[in-house]
């Protein structure tokens, strides 16, 4: 399977899914009017990846904004990751003082059965 590398736009995030390193990154903004179109290939990729994952998977989510249309897609993406039995961590980055983004990470943490690490950074 091929890695996914997508450049970010003002409405969609930068995506780097690198199988050989077990690194899955989503960064930037996710506020498209139709999120399914954007996320479907990513969710399919993860479904495939979960069959033969790297021995450790690091998921880095570093979002400045995301809309509710994306939030369901991100949940579906995390649910596909639950199939991975090897070591896996979801690193949820949020900007200093952005309690709403921290809380958004806690929402997923409450639903998803994968360890979350909340990481405060100065600027996204």
């Amino acid at each position: 399977m091929e890695d996914i590398r997508i450049e970010g736009t003002p409405k969609t995030p930068t995506v780097n899914f690198i199988k050989a390193e077990g690194i899955l990154e989503i960064k930037g903004r996710s506020i498209p009017e139709n999120s399914i179109e954007f996320y479907k290939p990513l969710i399919d990729w993860i479904e495939d990846y979960a069959r033969t994952p790297h021995n450790a998977t690091n998921v880095n989510i570093q979002l400045e904004y995301f809309n509710t249309s994306s939030s369901k897609c991100i949940l579906d993406l995390f649910k596909k990751l639950e199939a991975i039995n090897n070591s896996i961590t979801i690193n949820w980055y949020y900007e200093e003082d952005d309690e709403d983004m921290l809380e958004a990470g806690e929402d997923y943490d409450a639903i998803i059965n994968i360890p979350f690490k909340m990481i405060e950074i100065e600027e996204i």
Binding site: S35, T68, S69, S71, K72, A110
Partner: peptide
Amino acid sequence: KKMYQNVLNNGEMTLKGGGSLGLIE
């Protein structure tokens, strides 16, 4: 917060993409 998590996890997703998640948010 509970309602948001509940709709996010169990709520029907409409084709348009949001259900009532938008208003809760």
